[in-house]
C-alpha cells in the first residue's frame, strides 16, 4: 500500500549533516555506492562508465555552493551532500501507482520494492530533493535505503551498524540516529546547532536535518598581512655586500 503508515512509530531514523565540517571529499558518495551496489537495491548500475558520458545510479551527490552577501562583501564556500531525507509526508510514496514505493511503519525509512516497480518515474517527479534515481538497465527506480541492510545487521560490530556514508566520513560531518526521540544524541545536536530542514515550504516534512556553517569570527575578514621585507636596505648584509651596495647606489 502506498498510503503513508496509518500508525507510524515514534522512531524516525535519519541523518544529520554538518555543513560546517564537510570538506566535500565525496567519500560518503563513494562508500554509499560500494555498499549499496551489493545491498538491498543492488546493483547501482553504471552506464558507459569509462566512456565520454558516464552516468549511473548514486544515492549521494555532493554539491559545492557559494553563499554570497554582495552588500557585506562576504562569501562562504559550502560543501553540500544531498541524499534522501526520508520525509514524514513523503510525496514519492503516495504518487506510486503500484505499491512499490513505501514508508516503513517501524522506523520511517522510505524504500522501493524493485520487484514490482514499473519504472514510471512519477516518484522522481514528486520528490523535491532529487533523491530518486532511475536504473536504465533494470528499468526500475532506486533510492537510499539508509543502509537498512547494515544498520540492523547483527553480524556487524555495534559501532558499524550505521549507514555507509556515516561510517566512512573522515571528518565526522554525518551523524545517524533517531530524530523522533528528542533525547537522542542527534536530536540534541540539531537543537544545539539550529539544524534545519530543506525546502520546508514543499510540505514534505523531511526527517534529515542540516547543521548550518558556524558564523565567521570578526577580525578574520581581512586577508593575512604580507611579510614585510625591504629591498632597499642593506642593513645586516656582509662587508662585501655593503660595499657593492654603496658603489651601485652612488
Amino acid at each position: 500500500m502506498t498510503s503513508l503508515p496509518q500508525n507510524p512509530s515514534k522512531v524516525k531514523l535519519g541523518l544529520v549533516i554538518d555543513l560546517d565540517i564537510c570538506v566535500g571529499c565525496h567519500a560518503c558518495a563513494v562508500n554509499c555506492k560500494e555498499w549499496n551496489t551489493s545491498g538491498t537495491m543492488a546493483p547501482l548500475t553504471d552506464m558507459d562508465p569509462y566512456g565520454a558520458q558516464p552516468d549511473g545510479v548514486w544515492f549521494n551527490r555532493v554539491h559545492t555552493y557559494e553563499a554570497v552577501d554582495e552588500a557585506a562583501g562576504t562569501s562562504r564556500t559550502v560543501h553540500f551532500p544531498r541524499s534522501c531525507l526520508h520525509c514524514d509526508d513523503a510525496p514519492c510514496v503516495t504518487v506510486c501507482p503500484t505499491g512499490a514505493s513505501y514508508k516503513r511503519e517501524d522506523d520511517g525509512i522510505v524504500l522501493i520494492n524493485t520487484d514490482i516497480c514499473i519504472g514510471c518515474k512519477l516518484c522522481s517527479w514528486a520528490c523535491p530533493y532529487g533523491a530518486r534515481e532511475y536504473d536504465e538497465d533494470e528499468g526500475v527506480m532506486k533510492k537510499c535505503t539508509l543502509c537498512i541492510d547494515k544498520i540492523y545487521n547483527e553480524n556487524l560490530p555495534v559501532e558499524s551498524r550505521v549507514p555507509a556514508c556515516v561510517s566512512t566520513c573522515p571528518t565526522g560531518a554525518r551523524s545517524f540516529g533517531d530524530l523522533g526521540d528528542p533525547q537522542s544524541d542527534v536530536s540534541k545536536l540539531v537543537a544545539a546547532r539550529g539544524g534545519y530542514a530543506l525546502m520546508p515550504e514543499q510540505g514534505t516534512a523531511p526527517v534529515n536535518r542540516y547543521l548550518p556553517p558556524r558564523p565567521k569570527k570578526l577580525g578574520e575578514r581581512h586577508a593575512p598581512r604580507m611579510l614585510e621585507h625591504h629591498d632597499d636596505s642593506a642593513d645586516g648584509a656582509g662587508l662585501l655586500a655593503r660595499w657593492v651596495d654603496k658603489v651601485l647606489s652612488a
Binding site: 555543513l19 566535500g24 565525496h26 558518495a29 558520458q53 558516464p54 552516468d55 549511473g56 545510479v57 548514486w58 551527490r61 555532493v62 554539491h63 559545492t64 555552493y65 557559494e66 553563499a67 554570497v68 552577501d69 554582495e70 552588500a71 557585506a72 562576504t74 562562504r76 564556500t77 559550502v78 553540500f80 544531498r82 522522481s124 523535491p128 534515481e133 532511475y134 536504465e136 534545519y196 530542514a197 530543506l198 525546502m199 542540516y210 548550518p212 556553517p213 558564523p215
Partner: peptide, 25 residues
C-alpha cells in the same frame, strides 16, 4: 533548497561545483 541564505543579510546561493561532470538522470 540549501538553507544557506542565512549566512548574510542579502544571502544569495550559487553553485560552484556540480557533483558530477556529465548530466545524470
Amino acid at each position: 533548497a540549501t538553507g544557506l541564505g542565512g549566512l548574510g543579510a542579502n544571502g544569495q546561493v550559487r553553485m560552484v561545483e556540480s557533483p558530477h561532470s556529465e548530466d545524470n538522470f
